[in-house]
Simulated scan of single mutants.
Amino acid sequence: MIVLKEIMSLFLIILIGVYSKKRKIINEEINFGLRKILLEITLPLLIINSFNFSFQDEMKSNVLISLIYSVAFFVVGIIVSYICLIPIKSDKKKILHFANIFPNCGFVGFPIINSLFGAEGMIYGSIFNTVFNIFLWTYGVIIFSNKVSKSNIKKIFLNPSIIAVYIGIFMMIFNIKLPSFILESTKLVGNMTTPISMMIVGVMLADVKVKDIFKQGTIYYGSIIKLIVIPISLYFIKLLLKDNSTIINTIILIQAMPAATMTTIFSIDFNKEKEYSAIVVFISTLLSIITIPIMVRFIIN
């Protein structure tokens, strides 16, 4: 029911985006402005808020372990996705590879993790989210740009989201707490990230014929990799390590979430298969209604 509730909320916001584009409430100029707001204001504030937890001494070792698992499992996901996508050519491969690596950990993942593991799971989820953002603005940019230049490096390490990661890590290490009025304001604005991103997906879907949404075979193939193959690969690593801790279960389940909406945001910014990327996010989110409950039962035993 938690999965269904979150997914239905996402679909409703997507439909608002579709309606807004069809009624010409949102045009290309407004859509560009929404992306700028998301990337330069709401997302950085959301990242900073994800670090708002007590970094107590007894949690230090667990936080370090969750950091190691997050990095290692991102690398495993990259390798598995790259191998599975070898048969696919063109820019669609970039979209699917990006979607396979980066899960929707915020809007879909966190409520599920919170319901299963409570506050402890949310801490590990926040650590994963930190690694997510570092990979997003490094490897994620490289996927679309195909090269690492000086200008790219500058954009990667000095963009607002990565600066937010620097601030968040500093807050976490020194256990700095924002004043309540600042925290509440940044939280309210940061929480706008998901609605804005899903509306942007809806705006892109508005230009796609309904029949085209469900006839893209490569999208189903990519969704199987994202929602089943990668999580199961990580599950076998869990068995090899003989670790059934909340830490490893949290990280694996987050990786089993549908494609992040940043898939569409990046495809628009890099002008790569924009409509296709919106369909990827839509289909993987739709299929996750079935796969997430299965993965929860399968992974947690």
Rank of each mutant, 00 (worst) to 15 (best):
Ile30Cys: 04
Val63Trp: 03
Thr42Arg: 06
Leu64Ser: 14
Lys24Pro: 01
Asn52Arg: 09
Ile37Asn: 03
Arg23Tyr: 15
Lys60Asn: 08
Asn27Ala: 11
Leu64Glu: 08
Ile68Glu: 11
Leu39Glu: 01
Asn49Trp: 01
Ser50Met: 07
Ile47Trp: 01
Glu58Val: 12
Glu40Asn: 13
Ser70Lys: 04
Leu43Met: 07
Ile25Ala: 08
Ile41Arg: 07
Ser54Arg: 12
Leu43Ile: 01
Glu28Trp: 03
Lys60Glu: 13
Phe53Trp: 10
Pro44Cys: 09
Ile26Gln: 00
Ser66Ile: 02
Lys36Cys: 07
Tyr69Lys: 10
Ser54Tyr: 14
Arg23Gly: 06
Phe55Ala: 03
Tyr69Phe: 15
Phe53Leu: 08
Tyr69Ser: 08
Leu43Gln: 00
Leu67Pro: 07
Ile65Ser: 10
Ile37Trp: 01
Leu38Trp: 01
Ile65Asp: 05
Ser70Ala: 14
Pro44Met: 07
Lys36Leu: 12
Gly33Lys: 10
Phe53His: 06
Glu58Arg: 12
Asn31Thr: 08
Ile37His: 02
Ile65Leu: 15
Lys36Asp: 08
Ser66His: 09
Leu39Pro: 00
Lys60Gln: 13
Leu39Val: 06
Asn31Tyr: 02
Glu40His: 10
Ile26Asp: 00
Arg35Gly: 07
Thr42Leu: 10
Leu46Gln: 06
Leu67Met: 14
Leu34Pro: 02
Asn52His: 09
Ser61Cys: 09
Pro44Gln: 08
Leu39Met: 11
Asn27Pro: 05
Ile41Met: 13
Lys36Ile: 12
Ser61Val: 11
Ser70Thr: 08
Ser54Lys: 14
Ile68Asn: 05
Gly33Asn: 13
Ile47Met: 04
Glu29Val: 13
Ile26Thr: 01
Ile68Trp: 02
Ile41Gln: 04
Met59Glu: 11
Leu46Ile: 09
Gln56Ala: 15
Asn52Pro: 05
Ser50Tyr: 00
Lys60Gly: 05
Pro44Glu: 04
Ser54Pro: 00
Asn31Pro: 03
Phe51Ser: 02
Ile47Val: 12
Thr42Gln: 07
Ile37Ala: 11
Asn49Met: 12
Ile48Asn: 00
Leu34Cys: 06
Ser61His: 08
Ser70Trp: 03
Leu46His: 03
Glu28Tyr: 05
Lys24Gly: 01
Leu34Phe: 07
Ile65Ala: 12
Ile65Val: 15
Leu38Thr: 06
Leu67Thr: 15
Gly33His: 08
Leu43Asn: 00
Ile68Leu: 15
